[in-house]
Nucleic acid binder design. Structure first.
Length: 289
DNA sequence: CTTACGGCCTGTACGC
DNA sequence: TGCGTACAGGCCGTAA
């Protein structure tokens, strides 16, 4: 029985912070404290080439911990290197129990991991927007991938004052600013739309004007939408633990995302869809100012 | 310095 | 039925 821990139950649902966090919890259970018996990269690149001797550098290493920073997974290994992984838009991990049928040879199955327990983890990514690379654990904070990345939104030090400071002087719409990982880490199109709806802030509003009372609403709104989605993901992991097979951890219903022309859950007026910076934005023009 | 935009990649939905 | 096209969007390189 295989359990996918990057559930994409429905179209348009991409790995943002809550999904990555759910994947982290699912993978950690299979990997932490285990040794990687075998690793195989079945092609030379995803979005970027794999590093030199990628599989060989991982094979035989023990897993110390699996962490997350922004939308990246960080697999700390016992030789002082960390495997940095990003799922892009279509990446997913599937865990196969020791005696499960052969797996990992699908067209888009790009990386295979096998632990000393015989558990197989398959990374599948049909669009190959994902990324895997290696870096010294000690130097992660200075790694180019993380240079300038903003605060973790669920940390206590992500406060309205911190957000206001990051938005100060920004001439873009707040929607675009929240997608900028330098402002705050881990948000994507879905949760930005949801957070702005909760905070009753128009996605078209100038970023610099989100301060004071608006920032004071937006920060808890961001934390709430993320925490609720993580909780939903945790529920689905428990379903997986019951060997339920196909896992969809988005039982979660979004309030505005993907709901163009459907009634606003607050006022009943139709949800609107606009395009900002080439991306769909969903919002309620009546509730969000 | 900032902001804007095209390209990457492929499966899916939709119109004719 | 089949084909072509638009769309999904995180991230990055380049341009303005």
């Amino acid at each position: 029985m295989a359990g996918s821990v990057a559930g994409h139950g429905e179209l348009n649902e991409m790995p943002e912070l809550p999904e990555v966090e759910t994947v982290r919890l699912g993978l950690a259970a299979a990997l932490e404290g285990r040794r990687l018996k075998r690793v195989e990269a079945r092609r030379g690149d995803l979005r970027k080439p794999f590093p030199e001797r990628f599989a060989a550098r991982l094979a035989g290493r023990s897993v110390l911990s699996l962490r997350r920073r922004a939308k990246y997974l960080l697999l700390d290994l016992d030789h002082g290197e960390t495997l940095i992984m990003h799922m892009g838009m279509s990446g997913r991990f599937t865990i196969h129990a020791r005696n499960a049928p052969a797996s990992g040879s699908g067209k888009h199955d790009h990386v295979l991991f096998e632990t000393d327990e015989g558990v197989r983890i398959v990374f599948t990514d049909h669009r190959r927007f994902g990324l895997m690379t290696l870096a010294p654990t000690e130097e992660l904070d200075a790694h180019p991938l993380f240079e300038g990345v903003g605060p973790e939104p669920l940390d206590d030090d992500f406060t309205p004052a911190v957000l206001s400071a990051a938005l100060k002087g920004k001439r873009t719409p707040i929607k675009a600013a929240l997608l900028d990982q330098r402002v705050v880490a881990g948000l994507g199109n879905i949760y930005v739309c949801e957070a702005l709806f909760r905070a009753r802030i128009s996605p078209k509003r100038l970023a610099a004007s989100v301060a004071g009372a608006r920032a004071a609403r937006l920060v808890p709104a961001i934390k709430a939408v993320l925490n609720e989605a993580i909780a939903a993901g945790g529920s689905s992991l428990r379903d997986y633990a019951k060997a339920d097979g196909e896992l969809g951890y988005f039982q979660h219903r979004f309030r505005v995302y993907g709901r163009e022309k459907k009634p606003c859950p607050v006022c009943g007026k139709p949800i609107r869809r606009i395009v900002q910076a080439g991306r769909s934005t969903f919002f309620c023009a009546h509730c969000q100012k």
